[in-house]
Design a binder for these strands. Sequence first.
DNA 1: ACAGACGGGACCGCCCGTTGAT
DNA 2: ATCAACGGGCGGTCCCGTCTGT
Lengths: 195, 195, 195, 195
Amino acid sequence: MDTRMRILKRVYQDMRIKGFQGLRADKVIETMDITKGALYYHFKNKTLLGYAILEEVIQPEYLKPYLPLLEYEGNPVSFLQSILSGIKLTTESTDMQLGDPVHNLALEMSPLDEGFRKRLEIMQDSVKDIISDSLYRGQVRGFVIEQAKPVKIACFFQAVVAGNYGMTKAHLDKRIFHSNLETLSDYLDGFRVGV
Amino acid sequence: MDTRMRILKRVYQDMRIKGFQGLRADKVIETMDITKGALYYHFKNKTLLGYAILEEVIQPEYLKPYLPLLEYEGNPVSFLQSILSGIKLTTESTDMQLGDPVHNLALEMSPLDEGFRKRLEIMQDSVKDIISDSLYRGQVRGFVIEQAKPVKIACFFQAVVAGNYGMTKAHLDKRIFHSNLETLSDYLDGFRVGV
Amino acid sequence: MDTRMRILKRVYQDMRIKGFQGLRADKVIETMDITKGALYYHFKNKTLLGYAILEEVIQPEYLKPYLPLLEYEGNPVSFLQSILSGIKLTTESTDMQLGDPVHNLALEMSPLDEGFRKRLEIMQDSVKDIISDSLYRGQVRGFVIEQAKPVKIACFFQAVVAGNYGMTKAHLDKRIFHSNLETLSDYLDGFRVGV
Amino acid sequence: MDTRMRILKRVYQDMRIKGFQGLRADKVIETMDITKGALYYHFKNKTLLGYAILEEVIQPEYLKPYLPLLEYEGNPVSFLQSILSGIKLTTESTDMQLGDPVHNLALEMSPLDEGFRKRLEIMQDSVKDIISDSLYRGQVRGFVIEQAKPVKIACFFQAVVAGNYGMTKAHLDKRIFHSNLETLSDYLDGFRVGV
DNA sequence: ACAGACGGGACCGCCCGTTGAT
DNA sequence: ATCAACGGGCGGTCCCGTCTGT
């Protein structure tokens, strides 16, 4: 792997814990075998480093679980529920306990930096569009009830997932986390046809 | 108002925008007519200042909307819905657009400082208890259906409200915000008796 | 002497040698018994430190030799010549060999910083006005010939003095320095009445 | 033009504005279509780059106006005055407003680097010799009065020209500049025979 | 109870120069 | 002859916290 990507991956790890403002870029790369010269060569300043992490590390990871929905021909409700199950399985990983990186950065950086805000908005909208489109196609194919409003459900889905991460970040006991995932899953069940 | 509380209120304003890590305590009080001497007389260090803001400014505000639920004798679903309406009304205020302070701090500080984490956990649990208790009493009084699980609903309610703030923090268009408040309100309707 | 003035005086010494850009403020104060904290407290940044040196250290020194001219009732030509004699006497001092601080800074900083440029312009104009006024009064009192143009002479005087410092800064042999002072002195003689 | 000379010319442009210390060699060549590899292939370090600029760019330009004096058979006073006229014509060019490069560097670098000092000393002495020789030959040929002291006049000429550039570098109004050129020209007139 | 001065340490950014590869 | 990548040191700035005095 080239140095640039190594930096991005490593710095991202620290940013997950400290946030962007709390991130100390040079401290982090000191733990690798590279120096500030390399860091500054690849990224003109800290903000652009942050943007690169967003675009090249976070965005792919963030979209990844939802991309199969674009070509999924089954019931989108089932697919969304399987995503929730996937989230549940990773509960104990420290990475998951740090929450949704997009949501974390949105809360921290949106009021402070327009470059962050726009990139985060686009990412959230992408997922929203993927979900709502799949629900709409689900209606056409008879999987999803007519009364369901795809965009509204998609937004709600995202808010619950993000809010759930945040809610439980302060809680060592992760039962709330599971409870909310179940509740959302049950909520989605209500949009299946013929249940 | 005494100096101590003036500091707390003013610093809180800045912390809402910058977060706790981004907060520059001495820069903020420069905008008041006092100096660092006063700041460090009242608060031993920045962390204790943060705790004081949490306990003396944020906590009262955070609990305030829910406290009447303790003695409310009507349908708790209606009360929760009225809270959501209240949130909706303040959409345009800049203060609201900065999101839920408890949620913001939970995401930023929980992994970094146990003192913050505990205080935030307690606050979220307090609201959760108020809501779930009210729903339980609502069941006893025949307002809420038997199948409803008070704790689960309370947790979900909090997750949606918090997640909704976060989701829309990166969005200039606040329609998503309203949509999610409606969706949650509709969801709660499902727990009324005899609808 | 208070810390602020101690810093100004000491940093000025270094600025004379290195120029403003070459000045390393923290390196300089390391040689005193104060730290960067004190430096930054008294001067918000390096530029403002430079301005302060200009106004509080250089300006008084720069104007000092010319101030008596304001109330001088003798022949201004004689007074200007005595100034030149004074300059000649200090030839061997290292301070003098570093040249005219105002001229040095004018060459270095005028194209780079408007704040420097303006302050330097004002200082040079002040001396120019003092000299030209004295020459004018000298004409009225019959010391200076009618054909003399006070402003023109004042400007020329300053250019020669400044240029002479600069010319000889690259020369270890200071005879050129003395020669030019003499030439200027002789030139001024031409404006005396009845010689 | 080869790369070496392209670098010299381009870097010289920047050095005129920032000085040698303020010069950022790699920043400058970024504006060309080459990289640091080329720079450090041709010049071992920044100081040697500076010396090369002095010798290969500045020196030829600096001597150029005076070289014809070596073979000039007319009145040297007239020639020197024509040089002053030439300077006057270029007042509005930004290059001129940056002053005399030799004088600028002499003030900045003479106390800091012996290599700069010596090269600058030699250049100034060369011009001084050309001027004084021409005046001496002018005396022999009967153009210049016997009382004139060629070396003294040459030194004075240089000091005024250099000092005039410096004096007006801090002044947006260039009338002082013209005034001093005139004054010097008038001063030189005094050395003509039979006026 | 508060003001002013200062200590001290860290971080971002900057920039000179080197190295291996082509 | 030139480039991409990197090393390495340091300067300006920033900011938390302490101390003395009143």
